[in-house]
Simulated assay, not measured.
Amino acid sequence: MVVQDNGGGNDTSLIQTFTITVDAVNDPPSFSNLGNQTLSTWTNSPQTVNNWANTFIFGG
Rank of each mutant, 00 (worst) to 15 (best):
N33D: 12
F56H: 03
F18W: 14
F58E: 04
G9D: 01
V3A: 15
L34G: 09
P46D: 04
F18S: 14
G60I: 08
N36A: 11
Q16F: 12
V3K: 09
N50C: 01
T17S: 13
S32I: 00
F31R: 07
L39Q: 10
D11N: 15
Q4D: 13
V2G: 15
P29M: 06
G60Q: 12
T38C: 03
T41D: 09
N26K: 14
T43D: 12
W52H: 06
G59T: 07
L34N: 09
W42A: 15
I20Y: 06
I15P: 07
T38R: 04
P29W: 04
N51S: 01
T55Q: 03
D5W: 11
N10R: 10
Q47P: 00
P46R: 02
T55L: 02
F58R: 05
M1A: 15
P28K: 13
S32V: 01
T43C: 07
I57T: 12
I20L: 11
D5V: 13
N54E: 02
P46C: 03
A24W: 04
S32H: 01
F18R: 08
S45H: 08
N33C: 07
S13I: 08
Q47Y: 07
I15D: 10
P46I: 00
N36R: 04
I57F: 11
S40W: 05
I20N: 08
T21E: 07
T41A: 12
D23T: 14
N50M: 02
G7A: 12
T12V: 13
T43N: 09
N50G: 00
N26F: 11
N36S: 09
N36V: 04
V25R: 15
T41N: 10
Q4N: 11
S13D: 10
W52Q: 01
T43S: 14
L14I: 14
G60A: 11
Q47C: 06
S30N: 09
V49C: 01
N26C: 14
G8T: 03
G59M: 05
N50Q: 02
T55P: 00
Q16C: 14
M1P: 10
D5N: 15
S45K: 07
G9T: 02
T12P: 03
N54Y: 04
V3T: 13
A53M: 04
F18V: 11
T12H: 10
F56A: 01
N44L: 06
Q37E: 07
Q47G: 03
P28S: 13
V25M: 15
S40V: 06
S30Q: 05
N33F: 04
V25P: 05
N26I: 08
T38M: 02
W42K: 12
V3N: 10
Q4P: 03
P46G: 01
D27A: 13
V2L: 15
N6K: 10
N10G: 06
S40D: 06
S40L: 08
I57Y: 13
Q4H: 10
F56R: 01
